[in-house]
């Protein structure tokens, strides 16, 4: 069954084309002679500046959908346009360059490089840009200050708490000023208080900096922070 989800066309933003435009998107895996559908005929628009929470039970396909939007997986069929670029048509090299320029990642387990300091972890995506060293340093300092970790920049991930590591990951996600931030269970490995702080930080990124965020979460409390909830069940959008 096909389903679609679009924000109500009540503002000026509604007139603008969506930042994320997903049309008839399907994803299935082939195991032997068996075809296993993961996402079925998904239609979804996400406006620039939106904060969307993808919810659903385990195995519903929400992380797969997030991966597709982030350009780290490819759909089996359909179109997936981000800021007008159909990323489903991009080759691996172009897709890597596109991700570097357009997507900021926040993972459940932070995925920081353990051998790099907080500063170097945040600086990592900037290595793919042509920015001069001084400019990179300036940007990293700003990003770390924004997440409240200016005084921990020389610390390695194992010297930071989970919440602090996730803040570093958030700083890394925004350092290239991406078009889109994708967050996969960003509070899944944190206690409620720390998780709340991380969600507050994401809200700030969305409200103050106008960042478009798509977040996968199991947690209804976390989903409440989003402007919009999208439910998936058995690979189908139900709302």
């Amino acid at each position: 069954m096909a389903a679609s989800s679009s924000p109500p066309p009540s503002s000026d933003a509604a007139a603008a084309p969506p930042l994320v435009a997903i049309r008839a998107l399907s994803k299935y895996y082939v195991r032997g002679d068996q075809i296993i559908p993961v996402l079925v005929d998904i239609n979804l628009d996400v406006r620039a500046g939106d904060f969307v929470a993808l919810m659903g039970p385990s195995g519903s396909g929400k992380t797969t959908l997030l991966n597709l939007v982030a350009g780290i997986d490819k759909p089996s069929s359909g179109t997936l346009a981000i800021a007008g670029v159909d990323i489903a048509q991009l080759g691996d090299g172009d897709l890597a360059a596109w991700r570097a320029a357009n997507v900021g990642f926040i993972f459940q387990f932070y995925n920081l490089m353990p051998v790099l300091t907080a500063f170097q972890n945040v600086e990592l995506p900037l290595q793919l840009t042509s920015l001069a060293r001084a400019e990179r340093r300036e940007r990293v300092d700003i990003a770390l200050a924004l997440v409240g970790l200016a005084d921990r920049k020389d610390h390695y991930p194992n010297e930071l708490s989970g919440g602090q590591q996730q803040r570093v990951a958030i700083a890394r996600a925004i350092i290239t000023d991406p078009t889109l931030i994708v967050a996969d269970e960003p509070t899944g490995d944190l206690d409620r208080t720390t998780g709340g702080e991380i969600l507050a930080l994401l809200e700030r990124l969305n409200d103050d900096l106008g960042k478009t965020i798509i977040m996968v979460t199991h947690d209804p409390k976390a989903a409440e922070r989003a402007h919009r909830l999208v439910h998936l069940e058995k690979g189908v959008l139900v709302d």
Binding site: A70, I72, D92, G93, A96, A97, R99, A100, A101, V103, F105, F107, N111, M113, L124, P125, L128, R172
Partner: peptide, 10 residues
Amino acid sequence: ATLKALGFRN
């Protein structure tokens, strides 16, 4: 995988 997600190539 994280490096690749961030845009680093194979």
